[in-house]
């Protein structure tokens, strides 16, 4: 029981429940299916990002460039789709975005895996470079008239219905991307030797190399995989927003990392779970979208998220410090 309560997952889950209960009391409208589907809709892109960011943290690195990769892949793929006249083929957008994302992710991997540079500063650099390249050489104009394939994708639903109260409820097909990312990443991390090698590498890189894990190859996989997920998330984002905006997404990265860290992933590597990550994302999305229902103006968002980061990382840090002091 003790260990259950000292876990971040439990803490975050409790905060989520408390938030929902209080909000429901203050604003009964909160407790509707519509709220849930709205939250889900708003959580798809940030959720995919968070899964990707979690994988990097588990491997012992940190990546802040994924939003730039997403914006780059999304905007380039959309432009290409229009230029090639295949606007009705959404699959083209996904394939192209995934390929671009993979390429950019592998660029990260070259600096991190091959040249062995510190991951935070490398990805800060690529974040800026990717975005600068996109805006200079690919384009900086909004594409408001997104290809029909993307519009259709945004309209397609895996579930559509009406509540007894008469409001519309719909779960977009895009949700499948989040589900897919969750299932695939969970499978890789827990059921494959590849995934266990990544976890092991996050625990101790030196030991990993000594048992014969190809550490560099693992890093190429991790950053490449993150690139692909980011590229796909970019298209999902543009489709749902019905606009390809090259200025979008960048700026979200720290919020995503905040969500992942709230979910219990450690910056030192080797620790992080899918459940925790999804809980962290839920909390951040709740705050971003429902704070106003609590009667707190949306200008307070940053303050609340900032406090949650300090609370979520401070409690375990403080406990660890107390334990260390007691046994010193």
């Amino acid at each position: 029981m003790r260990s259950l309560f000292s876990r971040n997952e439990t803490l975050v889950a409790l905060i989520i429940v408390a938030f929902c209960v209080v909000t429901a009391i203050v604003e009964p409208r909160f407790l509707t299916i519509t709220t849930i589907t709205d939250l889900l809709r708003n959580g798809i892109v940030i959720g995919i990002f968070a899964i990707a960011a979690m994988l990097v943290l588990v491997s012992g690195g940190i990546d802040v460039s994924f939003t730039a990769i997403a914006a780059f892949s999304m905007y380039s793929a959309t432009k290409l789709m229009i230029a090639l006249g295949v606007g009705d083929q959404i699959i083209v957008a996904f394939l192209v975005a995934a390929a671009i994302g993979l390429t950019l992710g592998l660029i990260n991997a070259v600096f991190i895996g091959t040249l062995k540079l510190p991951t935070l500063i490398v990805t800060l650099g690529t974040l800026t470079a990717f975005r600068g390249f996109l805006l200079t050489f690919v384009g900086s104009q909004l594409i408001t008239n997104v290809p029909p394939g993307m519009r259709d994708f945004a309209r397609s639903m895996i579930f559509r219905g009406e509540t007894p109260g008469g409001s519309f409820v719909a779960v977009p097909t895009a949700t499948l991307f989040l589900v897919g990312a969750v299932v695939l990443t969970w499978f890789i991390l827990n059921r494959t030797v590849l995934g266990r090698s990544i976890v092991a590498m996050g625990g101790s890189r030196e030991s990993a190399a000594r048992v014969g894990i190809n550490v560099t190859a693992m890093q190429y996989f991790v950053y490449g995989y993150v690139g692909v997920l980011s590229g796909l998330a970019g298209i999902v984002h543009a489709s749902l927003a019905r606009v390809a905006n090259p200025f979008d997404l960048v700026g979200l990265e720290l919020q995503v990392i905040a969500a992942v860290v709230l979910g219990g992933a450690r910056l030192t590597g080797g620790h992080g779970t899918i459940t925790g990550t999804l809980l962290g994302v839920t909390l951040i999305v709740l705050i971003n979208n429902s704070l106003i229902m609590l009667g707190i103006p949306s200008t307070w968002q940053n303050v609340v998220i900032g406090f949650l980061i300090l609370l979520g990382t401070g409690m375990p840090a403080w406990q660890a410090r107390r334990r260390a002091a007691a046994s010193a």
Partner: peptide, 14 residues
């Protein structure tokens, strides 16, 4: 050269 974050079983069998 062990993995501090993994279980005894996984460390041995890795």
């Amino acid at each position: 050269s062990l993995f501090p974050n993994l279980s005894v079983a996984e460390n041995i069998a890795f």
